[in-house]
């Protein structure tokens, strides 16, 4: 390993431990797949060591990891090799099982678009405000609010269909 003059190597390992959960959960929220989340997870931390960003404080660190995770997750789906579809009859045992009882939340999150899921996760799990989410996503605050509003409505509609309104 190269000489670690500025202590970045040790710092990178600390950041891996500290933000592993945040990055993985956000990637999972966006991709809704373990495989996708794992790919995005590795991509994010490889970008960390490739770009060596100057992260001034914890707030800046968190924002950097959120932003890069979203970007990597977007690239993940833009990759045409992953967008290739498979005929249903060829999927065999890979076909998803019917939703289990108690999985209403998963089922309705699956129905949201990836963009809406990201906003929901940043708001409800990471605790970001709508202006902060707007900053992370490079969108107008009104657009973030609109996404949040649409997500809430879709979640409510879907859960009410199943008789379990929880939004």
């Amino acid at each position: 390993m190269k000489k670690d003059d500025d202590g970045f190597n040790a710092r990178a390992e600390e950041l891996l431990e500290r933000y592993a959960g945040l990055v993985y959960r956000l990637a999972f929220a966006r991709t809704r797949s373990r495989e996708g989340a794992e790919d995005v997870f590795q991509e994010v931390f490889l970008r960390l060591v490739a770009k060596r960003p100057q992260l001034e404080n914890e707030e800046h660190e968190k924002a950097w990891f959120c932003r890069v995770t979203i970007n990597c997750a977007n690239s993940y789906w833009r990759n045409p090799f992953r967008r290739r579809t498979q005929p249903l009859e060829d999927t065999g045992e890979l076909t998803a099982p019917p939703p289990e009882e108690g999985n209403e939340l998963d089922a309705c999150l699956d129905r949201l678009s990836p963009e809406l899921r990201v906003v929901v996760h940043l708001y409800y799990y990471e605790g970001y405000s709508t202006p902060e989410i707007a900053g992370l996503l490079g969108k107008k605050e009104s657009a973030v609010r609109m996404r949040l509003m649409r997500a809430r409505r879709q979640l409510r509609d879907f859960l009410e269909e199943g008789g379990n309104s929880c939004v």
Partner: peptide, 10 residues
Amino acid sequence: TRDRMKAVLS
């Protein structure tokens, strides 16, 4: 991931 980061850093 840690191993891959180390590889890049090296």
